[in-house]
Amino acid sequence: MRSFLPLNFGADTVSRIAKGKIWDTSTGDKATRVLEVYRYDPESGRGPRLDVYHIDRKSCGPMVLDALVKIKNEIDPTLTFRRSCREGVCGSCSMSIDGRNWLACTQPIDDIRGTIRVFPLNHFLVMKDLVVDQSHVIAQHRLIQPWLKSETPGPERERLQSPEDRAKLDGFYECILCFSCTGGCPSYWWNGERYLGPAVLLQAYRWLVDSRDEAKGERLDTLEDPFRLYRCHTIMNCTKTCPKGLEPAKAIARIKAMLVERQH
């Protein structure tokens, strides 16, 4: 099911999406797939548009990223997007595909029925085409100090951790910071300037639960805020859209539980 809202519902003037160019490279073949791709050129002086491309599925790789690369190579070299590892570990090519956020490199074309609609990560500011400005989320990530904090001088060799304590990081350390979850979170849409969002809070939990870290209280102090943390209303879009299968909503629930624990 597609969103029930019109494409430009509630969009401000600069964000309104116009009808774009139809690159008719269709061969009429049954293997032709249609992609609608968000385009925005900051130097054109014009707003965003939605271009339509036709690609031959038979001469294209299996993933949406392959389709985008094919468009860039064969149809329109100006199409701009981030990509690097093409195997789901770098987090560069996260975008809105067919109504959810996923890595273009791990999203099979054949899993999508009908027209494949591709947009930049929801609610982020767009720099060009599918490339978004991540400076705010990166600054929010820095805010939670994503590194080991310890006053006790380090031992000669590594800081030890029991296998049980190490296991507590499982499901949380694997985050690749693609921000699919943050882009898919309605609370982040309405209050992203103050709310830290699921990706950053999952990372915050990853350090809170690390047995080697000595700054738990300080970390909780940073999060104890109606907006930074408590804008999470357990809508669960984050958990559903995580291309790594992680559960940001669970991490956030556990942070809230820690904060309750230290008051009672």
Binding site: H136, I138, R142, L143, E224, D225, P226, Y230, K256, Q263
Partner: peptide, 20 residues
């Protein structure tokens, strides 16, 4: 700067009370 924006006015130091 983005750091200034992310830090905002700082943490309010509450929220847990209402949550609980």
């Amino acid at each position: 700067t983005s750091t200034a924006l992310a830090r905002g006015l700082g943490a309010a130091g509450n929220g847990t009370r209402d949550f609980w």
